[in-house]
């Protein structure tokens, strides 16, 4: 037993918090991520983590609650991207880039000002890379509540979301407000990304958003199945990564351990690469059951894969 779980793994309070927070953020990120990947908004999804970090550094500077900074930054960033234009793909890419560049510039300023104030050594490190082991247990209920909110928005608008990523005209013809759906989704994304970047750091936030979703979409043919696979994959890689990181305190001579984000991201990356292997795909590619998962969703995912 001790070969796999080094002593104290189950009794350590930070580990227990990390396992809970990790599972929740992984689950929410993976579910939101399926829509992000299907809608080809990975860049925005990633950019929002950095924008949220800027909000965090601003909150640091003004002495506000960091959680407020992270989520506020994300929502403002999402609004700015929408304002510049998200209707055409090329301009969407540009809008994301411009907002991201500005946010990073502001982050540079706030981090600089933070360091000149002298009070916050390690702020850069912590803001950029975060650590799931240093999460304050008292924030857990808040993280859970806001996660549920982000998830609820996405579940509520899942059909228009999927339809609008297939055909804008078709969606409009059904009387659905395309812009409204897009904005709602951006807000849901900003909330969940802001949460996950404060909980697990901005690197892991992007990895959990895109990785499990991209892998599961390659493996499955229906929306429901890809949501399930993405959630399972996200939680599994997170827990395994936490275990490895904990154990790595005992591997590395410096006894400092390796960062948990390194292990989780590596596992996610390996999972994505494996999802492209023919024999893995074949194993998943069973004939669909007749009554499963709604024919329209199924057709749409297939159509999107052909387009990819």
């Amino acid at each position: 037993m001790h070969v796999v779980f080094e002593s104290g793994f189950f009794t350590s309070a930070p580990v227990r918090t990390a396992l809970i927070i990790g599972a929740v953020t992984a689950m929410v990120s993976s579910v939101v991520g399926v829509f992000v990947v299907v809608r080809s908004q990975s860049f925005a999804g990633h950019a929002l983590t950095d924008v949220a970090t800027t909000g965090g550094s601003a909150a640091f500077f003004f002495g506000l609650s960091p959680l407020l900074g992270f989520i506020g930054g994300g929502v403002i960033g999402a609004g700015a991207m929408d304002l510049i234009g998200v209707e055409r793909e090329r301009r969407r890419d540009l809008a994301t880039g411009i907002v991201l560049g500005t946010a990073l510039g502001l982050a540079a300023l706030f981090l600089y000002l933070d360091t000149t104030k002298g009070a916050t050594t390690g702020a850069t490190q912590q803001l950029l890379f975060g650590s799931i082991f240093t999460v304050d247990p008292s924030t857990v209920p808040l993280v859970l509540g806001l996660s549920a909110l982000g998830l609820a928005i996405v579940v509520l608008i899942n059909r228009p979301l999927l339809l609008s990523s297939l055909s804008a005209e078709l969606t409009r013809a059904r009387g659905i407000n395309l812009r409204g759906v897009g904005v709602l989704f951006m807000i849901a994304m900003a909330v969940s990304v802001g949460l996950s970047s404060i909980a697990v750091g901005s690197i892991l936030s992007t990895a959990l958003l895109i990785g499990p979703a991209a892998a599961s979409i390659r493996l499955t043919k229906s929306l429901h199945a890809s949501l399930m696979v993405a959630g399972v994959l996200g939680v599994a890689t997170t827990w395994l990564g936490i275990l490895f990181a904990y154990d790595s305190f005992y591997w590395v001579p410096s006894s400092q351990g390796l960062p948990v984000s390194f292990f989780i991201v590596s596992l996610i990356f390996i999972a994505y690469l494996m999802s492209g292997l023919p024999f893995v795909r074949r194993r998943f590619d069973r004939p669909p059951r007749a009554n499963s998962a709604g024919a329209s969703n199924q057709a749409s995912i297939e159509a999107l894969e052909v387009g990819a």
């Binding site: 908004q41 892991l204 390194f262 990356f269």
Partner: peptide, 23 residues
């Protein structure tokens, strides 16, 4: 695969390696 998802994954993989090197 989808190029934007691939780009995101390549980015986080490099950043995670960077975090490991720094630690």
């Amino acid at each position: 695969g989808r190029s934007d998802a691939v780009t995101a994954l390549a980015l986080v993989m490099m950043l995670a390696l960077g975090a490991a090197f720094l630690s």
